[in-house]
Design a protein around this nucleic acid. Structure first.
Length: 295
DNA sequence: TTCCAGGGGTAGA
DNA sequence: TCTACCCATGGA
């Protein structure tokens, strides 16, 4: 195994990034909670499949990989957003009790996949379905079509591979429902070079958003989720989870139009998504209950 | 059987 | 720009 040590920001907490949202539960990510090791399999440019492990040490993040260590280190930096500056967000947290923890712990980094392609497919699998089914769809896709590692597990399939699969077969083997046609179309466009998802990492917010919304099957929620994963933190992914969380904490559990709930985040521009992700919702809800009891 | 889940597309106002 | 309505699949 090759080892690389990566420097991190002073107030960096590995587990906070790993558990920033649900991506950790989607293969090929694996998490060893006891050892505190995040690992995954990736198909490398050379064609081989290598395991990469990341764990925290007092000296920094240790990246261990079976091959192409420079490539693995670059992937890790992107996956954990190590090169991003969150000082603006932390300054915004000042004076906001339920964001104090976020500032103290240096939060703001969100776990993402090495490629925008993988993030987009997983986002598509999270649309209009249960989280359990999102995990099942991703697991089926990886197990059936991902390049396999000697260990028997597999990497996330490349778009070229998915592009060659008949949509009906995709539906039957991966249980992705109506998403089969959308997934197939996206894979073919990426494979043909008509759609450059990696480019979205380096363009402006406006261009990234327009590019995402132009993809059939990607609406406001999915685009906002992708923008967050691309490093733009001001488009709220309004889904059923968002609605329940905000309604319960800020609107006394009463039915509230999306517009009103989004407006409640106005004062947190341009970091609304980070506030949504790292706000101490439990603390806010306990306070509601306490005030209600006393009042 | 019905309802809903970490919504999207379309038509019409 | 906003709303109403229909669409899709699998599981509880």
């Amino acid at each position: 195994m090759h080892e690389t040590l990566l420097a991190v920001a002073p107030a960096f907490h590995f587990r906070d990034v790993v558990f920033s949202h649900g991506w950790l539960r989607l293969p090929p990510y694996q998490w060893d909670d006891e050892a505190g090791i995040l690992s995954r399999l990736d198909r490398l440019p050379s064609g081989s499949v290598a395991r990469t492990e990341i764990r925290d040490t007092p000296e920094g993040l240790l990246v261990r990989t079976e091959a192409e260590p420079e490539h693995a280190a670059a992937r890790a930096r992107w996956m954990l957003a190590l090169d991003e500056d969150f000082s603006g967000f932390h300054a915004l947290c000042e004076g906001e009790p339920h964001l104090a923890r976020a500032a103290e712990r240096g939060q703001g980094r969100i776990l993402r996949c090495p490629t925008a392609w993988e993030d987009l497919v997983k986002t598509l699998f999270s649309v209009n379905t249960t989280w359990r089914q999102t995990i099942a769809m991703t697991t089926h896709l990886v197990n059936h079509y991902g390049a396999s590692h000697p260990s028997g597990a597999a990497a996330f399939p490349d778009p070229e591979v998915v592009a060659r699969i008949d949509p009906q077969e995709l539906q039957e083997r991966c249980r992705v429902g109506y998403r089969a046609g959308v997934l197939s179309a996206i894979a073919r466009e990426v494979a043909d070079g008509r759609l450059d998802l990696e480019r979205l990492k380096s363009v402006s917010l406006e261009e990234a958003e327009a590019g995402l919304l132009a993809i059939r099957g990607i609406g406001p929620y999915a685009a906002a989720n992708m923008l967050m994963l691309l490093g733009h933190y001001d488009h709220l992914p309004v889904d059923s989870w968002f609605r329940k969380t905000v309604r319960d904490a800020w609107f006394n559990g009463e039915s509230t139009p999306d517009r009103k709930m989004v407006e409640a985040f106005d004062r947190f521009r341009p970091y609304r998504t980070l506030v949504y992700l790292f706000y101490d919702w439990e603390g806010a809800m306990r306070r509601e209950v306490w005030e209600g009891t006393v009042g």
